[in-house]
């Protein structure tokens, strides 16, 4: 009669996630990263004006947030700007990356370096620069919605397209040029090559870049603060002004909604990407 029970083999050298100390480190990291967010979400359901002690569950602050016209308007502004700037910066970023990958021209290294400037320049400087620029050229104010969001959208595009360009450029670096040659050899014209070969290769970079651009735009405060007027308040700017009076669960509720949206967009993007992979191999 066997007294042995099947035992799991001991962790192998690369089974990091099965080693106790590694699990502790991971756990610690997760707590450190997500505890503030979990707290924020939890306290959005707190039945108390002060955000300190737990007094019971309620959803009334969500109702309150929904009823807050200023907050809703700011939220709509933010979403509109985020969508617009994501679309524009993804297109511009992809074109820039394509240009840098495809062509040789004088001063290309300089140009390639200049592309990353918006990423490394402190946001505050960019914000001030935008402010000066728009007042200098006399950008019209008081336009009807959504044209009044133009300044902020342009400002957002100006830094987020650089992120898209860098991500897509990195993706193109491992493109096999024989793929393009093969497509042309098989009868594809310039545009067909881009549509059938280059864009599919870029796609993971495009999705990642667009996602970056979207979240960058959605939560940007500094640059937006310098380019927004009284009637073009975005969500982060609005939250900031609300917090200056007091941190109410209403702010928590609004922030929770924002987190949910960001996560939803990310999941959606990943899902689209995975489905495309699965489609083809299915």
């Amino acid at each position: 009669m066997s007294i042995f029970r099947p035992r799991r083999p001991p962790p192998g050298p690369l089974d990091y996630t099965r080693q106790t100390w590694m699990r502790l480190v991971l756990l610690g990291t997760f707590v450190f990263l997500y505890a503030p967010i979990a707290t924020l979400v939890a306290f959005s359901f707190n039945d108390s004006k002060r955000n300190i002690v737990w007094r019971g569950f309620t959803t009334k602050y969500y109702e309150k947030a929904l009823a807050n016209e200023g907050l809703i308007e700011a939220f709509m502004n933010s979403m509109t700007i985020a969508v617009l700037s994501t679309v524009i910066s993804t297109i511009l970023g992809a074109l820039t990356a394509y240009l840098l990958w495809r062509f040789k021209f004088p001063l290309k290294p300089v140009y390639e370096g200049a592309i990353t400037l918006p990423i490394v320049i402190p946001e505050i400087c960019l914000g001030v620069a935008m402010l000066v620029f728009f007042s200098r050229i006399g950008w019209p104010t008081g336009l009807p919605w959504p044209f009044n969001l133009g300044q902020i959208t342009i400002a957002h595009v100006s830094f987020s397209f650089a992120f898209v360009a860098v991500v897509v450029r990195a993706r193109m670096a491992n493109f096999n040029p024989e793929l393009e040659a093969a497509a042309r050899d098989l009868g594809a014209g310039e545009w067909a090559v881009v549509r059938d070969i280059i864009i599919p290769h870029m796609r993971p970079g495009l999705v990642a870049g667009a996602l970056l651009a979207f979240t960058l735009s959605l939560d940007d405060f500094v640059i937006t603060f310098f380019t927004s007027g009284p009637d073009t308040v975005t969500f982060p700017v609005k939250v900031y002004s609300m917090v200056r009076f007091s941190v109410t669960p209403e702010v928590n509720a609004a922030s929770t909604v924002l987190i949910v949206i960001t996560v939803a967009v990310t999941v959606l993007a990943l899902w689209i990407q995975n489905r495309q992979g699965a489609d083809k191999s299915g």
């Binding site: 096999n176 024989e178 793929l179 093969a182 042309r184 050899d185 594809a188 599919p200 290769h201 083809k280």
Partner: peptide
Amino acid sequence: VPANRRPVNMVFQSYAVFPHMS
């Protein structure tokens, strides 16, 4: 005559099979 209109076709050294197509 550009490459896409020549009556010749090529098998490339890396085969250049399009990875995203069946």
